[in-house]
Nucleic acid binder design. Structure first.
Lengths: 223, 223
DNA sequence: CATTGACTTATTGTATACAAACAATTAAAT
DNA sequence: ATTTAATTGTTTGTATACAATAAGTCAATG
């Protein structure tokens, strides 16, 4: 694993919390490297917006509720467009890939046991795979580039691990609608279904943040 | 000027041509620096997609006609959305800024003398300013982040310097329409006008590329 | 004459050293 | 006791040195 992945994953998994300053030397020591490769990894993370530059060095970016809303708006726009373009440009092979990914998604959901982190991790991963196949089918490499940067941010909040089986089944239904629209070459229907799908995700994350906040308030009171 | 700007501008101005390999040491010597800051600049350019990684080091990215089409699709989507959001969220001050930028644009166009590079440079700059004010008014920082990366690429082709006064006046009219729609809080009209505007830009760049190609073919024949 | 293999050169990737800037803590003065 | 100045310590930014790897060249052989 290289320095970039190490730091990025640490941020995503919450090991490096928002506002935390990233000291080059301690990072270097932790992963048995010199400061040089660390600095490059940090430059990359900076360009992606996961860390923000300070007067000296960088700190892990703190995303507000408003950031989440903006990012999801952006993602809805981009992935909605990708879905509509996929309905136009998809090859037979693209359709196969999408169907395969969706079958894996269905299987992962059927394996799901309430509140089991491991099975949810699978679901999240397979879900991402499905979204990727759609973006691939849209035949727009540049959209792909930008979506991949937008997708990372909400992961930081790890709200994904709070889906219940009803929500998951609902999500699967929307996947099927998207797939059908793309198969039938209906760009507008594909876009709208994708919109709905991602906005559901947004509501979920925002609700989760609300809960987190409440838990935080509770803690304060207990103190 | 720092290393990042130096290299980026060299690419934009055509000093570093597509496919050209960027050797760290020669760059370092050219701007009286060591390799360390050069490498960081290159990492950043890599994250933005202006240079592509090789087995060792990087080379200036070569953009195809298809890339241009994809990038403009993306830009249309993003800036169209920004315009529609600006029509919803714009403050009084935003409107002032937009009008100010557009007046400067009008003045720059009136100063324009056919085939004068300097006056065209002004126009391009003021035009960019106008687009920025709209993105600012949309109140979506993340959209802004992604648009800024998309906008750079077409500049590489420097087709902007081939506008004639008729096209410029046409462009000014569309600007006015966009401004009016945003002022009157008509998001859909703003979006459509912005679409039209950017697609005009796309056609212009593509036509320019076609001409370049023809000139190239002519050269081949002469040889 | 072409093709392959070894050797040489050049360039990157990583480590380390040093200087400069910022932060923090302590001491002194009002 | 509080505020300011100074000194110390930590961390970044830049330079340089060294090792590893890719590429290019030249010679030798089929």
């Amino acid at each position: 694993m290289d320095a970039y992945e190490f730091i990025r994953d640490a941020i995503i998994e919450g090991k490096f919390v928002p506002g935390m300053r990233l000291a080059e030397e301690s990072l270097a020591k932790e992963m048995n490297l010199s400061r040089t490769p660390i600095r490059e990894a940090i430059k990359q993370l900076e360009a992606e917006g996961l860390v923000i530059p300070l007067k000296r060095g960088v700190s892990v970016r703190h995303f507000t509720k408003d950031d989440i809303r903006q990012i999801y708006d952006l993602r809805t726009l981009l992935e909605g467009y990708a879905a509509s373009q996929a309905a136009i440009h998809r090859s037979e092979n693209d359709l196969l890939e999408m169907e395969k990914a969706n079958i894996l998604y269905e299987e992962a959901i059927s394996r799901y046991v309430e509140s089991d982190m491991e099975s949810l991790k699978d679901i999240v991963q397979v879900n991402q795979k499905f979204h990727e196949t759609i973006v691939n089918a849209s035949k727009n490499e540049h959209i792909h580039f930008h979506i991949s940067k937008v997708v990372v941010v909400p992961i930081v909040f790890r709200s994904f691990y709070w889906y219940n089986s009803f929500q998951l089944k609902q999500s699967l239904e929307v996947h099927k609608t998207i797939l059908e629209a793309i198969k039938n070459s209906e760009p507008e229907r594909a876009r709208i279904a994708m919109h709905e799908h991602i906005y559901q995700g947004r509501d979920h994350v925002l609700k989760h943040l609300e809960q987190i906040k409440n838990i935080h308030l509770l803690k304060e009171e207990v103190k």
